[in-house]
Design a protein around this nucleic acid. Structure first.
Lengths: 150, 150
DNA sequence: TCTGACATTGACAACCATTATCTATCAGAG
DNA sequence: CTCTGATAGATAATGGTTGTCAATGTCAGA
């Protein structure tokens, strides 16, 4: 996974010589476009299905490949749901952040957590851990779903 | 997942009428025993392999089943590694807590995080989320491994 | 504009952890 | 001891993800 087996077109997103080509290929553009429209988190398979629905002819393999690259570039967020499936979402904000996801409708909110960052760093430093990274996910039921259920 | 499909032997761990039988069967006892000895997190498959290595004849299915039940009972912690595999570890402390795991040797430290709990609750309350739960995992390289590498 | 080299695609099969199924077996009560 | 429901576990699915590799597309330079 670390050996960047693919690592394609790393040469910046050029302004496109013709058309609105963003990253070289039609497929990549379509994928990015769909990602921008879908709210909340979706699995690679769902994204692939959506692509097909829109008439775009893109292979599942390609979807996986792009999502992987995009998530390495931090252009999309990747989280795992409770069944272990990987879900992707286009990042709204650029930097490091976390998510609060609704268990019912799947929509998610990006949350900042300076407090958490500090805490994590503190804990790690105290134990002498280095090269530290962390994941934080909050799950709950959003106001909308909560009132709908009640 | 919520429909407690299995949910066996819910009738408390009786003091055992004969032997040190903890939960009725040899297999369950062996599993718990191994869990107690293994440090850090291990996959169900690893635990199963260890069981076999010790000469215990336990089926892989059974290992999975027990780990599932134990984790529902919060008798073991379950986390997911980066490849999506589920790892289990016997809980040292009873209550809610998080882990800081070494990427290199797999050992983990249990950490308390009142700060995080408070933060998560605050964020959730602010957004109107209810029935909130959260996961926090810290990954890094422990002092031992760090100095070994250096 | 043409062309060749290299990157990308995608159908398909392989992987592999996990779960479902279904019968044989065991534990414990009476 | 015997009966009965719980448990075990071999085996077969499941299903998301990744590997393979030939076909195709892209773009730079001629």
């Amino acid at each position: 996974m670390t050996p960047q087996s693919v690592e394609p077109s790393r040469q910046l997103d050029r302004p496109s010589t013709r058309g609105t080509r963003v990253r070289g290929t039609r497929q990549a553009e379509a994928l990015v476009s769909v990602l921008g429209k879908l709210p909340g988190f979706h699995s690679a398979q769902e994204i692939h299905a959506e692509l097909r629905r829109l008439g775009e002819r893109v292979g599942l393999t390609t979807v996986y490949r792009h999502l992987q690259v995009l998530s390495e570039d931090e252009a999309v967020d990747a989280i795992r749901d409770e069944s272990g499936e990987t879900l992707y979402r286009r990042c709204a904000t650029g930097g490091h952040h976390h998510h609060m996801t609704c268990r019912s409708c799947g929509r998610s909110i990006e949350v900042e957590g300076r407090a958490v960052e500090r805490w994590a760093e503190g804990v790690a430093a105290e134990a002498g851990f280095v090269d530290v990274d962390h994941t934080v996910e909050i799950f709950g039921v959003c106001p909308g779903c909560a009132s709908a259920t009640a």
